[in-house]
Write a protein that binds this DNA or RNA. Structure first.
Lengths: 123, 123
DNA sequence: TCCATATGTCGATTAGTCTCGACATATGGA
DNA sequence: TCCATATGTCGAGACTAATCGACATATGGA
């Protein structure tokens, strides 16, 4: 992920309504939700929501797809990967000893092929 | 990490000068840098920088410690861990299949005990 | 105490963001 | 074509953030 895109993503997530939208859409993966339903769910006027959805879309955090009269929005998990990667890889900076414990903690959150042997429940 | 703290952290990192400061301090881990040197390094007036350092500090992303006349700032890697965790664990939401590939990519960035057998170089 | 260095705080200006009413566009059906 | 539904765009007002000169505080040394 590039510098400008990271700034856009951080700015997009720095606003309560937009962070709520993003989390809501993550919950609704992989089906997504239409714009109107998102607005209703978070009790925000449709035009205000439209602005927020535009900001999240431009940041690459969500994506829109028209289905008949509705426009379905979906979270872009690839963007989450890119954003966390931007932070974590920055930490590394050639020094794995700094971020190794950081990654170890993340892997304990959610078992993968590599960490299935570690405790799966995180406190 | 809690909701309000996450908002503060995203907002703090959504500003170019502050993102630069944070990356600079990560580069200078674990020694840190005095406020004046940070300001000089990024060519920002000292009082403007003081404001930005305050915002980063309140967000928990950096921490200050006085050493004689200088105040040394250090990146708080724990905050990076908490912030990435906030994003990634949200993705999981009880569904590891969603974020497993996400974590797999992060671990490939920087070898740990679990992933030392995977390719260490990331493209 | 007085001065120099290092940093923080205040206040004003400028710029940007958030919100929402009003209007515009897009789709599907009668 | 006309209407209803779904969503987007524009514009104004209110709010918030960024910048930086001027002043204040803190530390160490003469």
């Amino acid at each position: 992920m590039e510098y400008e895109q990271a700034i856009l993503a951080f700015a997009a997530l720095a606003q309560p309504t937009r962070l709520d939208v993003f989390r809501l859409l993550i919950e609704h993966e992989p089906d997504g939700l239409p714009a109107g339903e998102i607005a209703r769910h978070l009790a925000v006027p449709h035009n205000t929501m439209s602005t927020h959805l535009g900001i999240l879309t431009r940041a690459g955090l969500i994506a829109a797809e028209r289905h008949s009269r509705s426009i379905i929005f979906r979270a872009q998990l690839e963007a989450v990967r890119a954003l966390t990667g931007y932070l974590v890889k920055d930490c590394c900076g050639g020094r794995p000893e700094i971020c190794a414990p950081l990654i170890a903690d993340l892997t304990s959150c959610c078992p993968t092929q590599n960490t299935i042997t570690k405790e799966a429940v995180h406190g």
